[in-house]
């Protein structure tokens, strides 16, 4: 099997001497970061950051579950577009770019074309401030947003554009902004799930909330890499508090018979292993309180 090799640079003796190490793909990204004693000087390879970014699940998956519960669209839970004027620093713009992008995904899931247009304009405006607007074909997206029939294409193209932006920021010297965008997207996805769950107590949403331990660990790994940015570090402290709650959640494992079915000429495999999160009411309440508090501080 192919081994990926990553280089990371550790400045030693006031930055005059550099040593390079290689690590195999099997090494945990957390371990790589924690093994480095000079935290503020870590220059993490963009390849490692990209690996973490590429594996982060899309917040669209949460919006899909919300829609599947049968609950109707609620624009009141989204970050109002009027808040955009409040964001003056690059960190605030990046984190809220991620938040608005998740909101746009939620809006698109529900085929709300007028809100799609408004959120698209907001995201586009922030992308200009962050100098990543060249990844957006705003005219095409705007055209797609005017017609409800085209919202699938809008969702596809905008998701692709966000992916390109994250890749670009990770490769450039602005990986911290990329990490903040990813964090904003993840936090907003959790916020939407918590808000909707509070009103509906839907089982699938409860499981989805309790099931975020793996993606949260990946996110914390990414944030750790850029904690020389104080805004990243501040948010990461909250994420680590959240991680402490997730670490207490019990997971039950059992196996079943695996099967393969063919669907439209493609084999569909069903795995043997089944993991079920056994999240308690108390744990859900603790997660919800922390997520809502963090998200509301970020969008102010």
């Amino acid at each position: 099997m192919k081994q990926r090799h990553y280089k990371y640079i550790v400045p030693i003796l006031l930055g005059t001497l550099f040593s390079c190490q290689k690590s195999s793909n099997n090494e945990d990204f957390n371990q790589i970061v924690e093994a480095n004693p000079i935290e503020t000087e870590v220059d993490v390879s963009s390849e490692i950051a990209m690996q973490v970014i590429e594996q982060m699940p899309s917040p669209l998956e949460i919006s899909a579950i919300i829609k599947k519960t049968g609950l109707s669209y609620n624009s009141g839970i989204l970050n109002p577009i009027t808040h955009m004027e409040n964001y003056t620093t690059n960190s605030q713009k990046a984190i809220n770019f991620g938040i608005y992008a998740t909101d746009l995904g939620y809006v698109n899931m529900y085929n709300s074309s007028q809100d799609a247009m408004n959120y698209l304009e907001t995201v586009s405006s922030l992308s200009q401030d962050l100098n990543v607007s060249h990844f957006f074909n705003f005219e095409l997206l705007q055209k797609l947003a005017t017609n409800e029939q085209n919202l699938d294409s809008l969702m596809h193209i905008s998701t692709q554009n966000f992916e390109e932006i994250n890749d670009y920021l990770a490769k450039s010297q602005r990986g911290d902004l990329g990490a903040l965008i990813i964090a904003g997207g993840w936090i907003e996805g959790m916020y939407l799930a918590c808000e909707v769950h509070q009103k509906s107590d839907h089982k699938s949403l409860r499981e989805k909330i309790g099931d975020q331990k793996v993606s949260l660990s990946s996110l914390i790994s990414l944030m750790n890499a850029y904690k020389s940015n104080p805004d990243v570090e501040l948010i990461n402290k909250d994420l680590m508090k959240l991680q402490n709650i997730f670490n207490k959640i019990q997971v039950k494992e059992h196996t079943r018979e695996s099967k393969v079915i063919e669907e439209d000429g493609i084999p569909m495999y069903q795995d043997k292993k089944v993991l079920t999160v056994m999240v308690t009411d108390d744990e859900i309440n603790q997660i919800r309180t922390l997520v809502i508090d963090l998200r509301n501080r970020l969008v102010k």
Partner: peptide, 18 residues
């Protein structure tokens, strides 16, 4: 070789696609 593959996930985790 099929022109794709599907996977029905029942255990959240990091998966590798080669």
């Amino acid at each position: 070789y099929f022109q794709g593959i599907g996977y029905s996930c029942s255990a959240t985790g990091i998966y590798y696609v080669m």
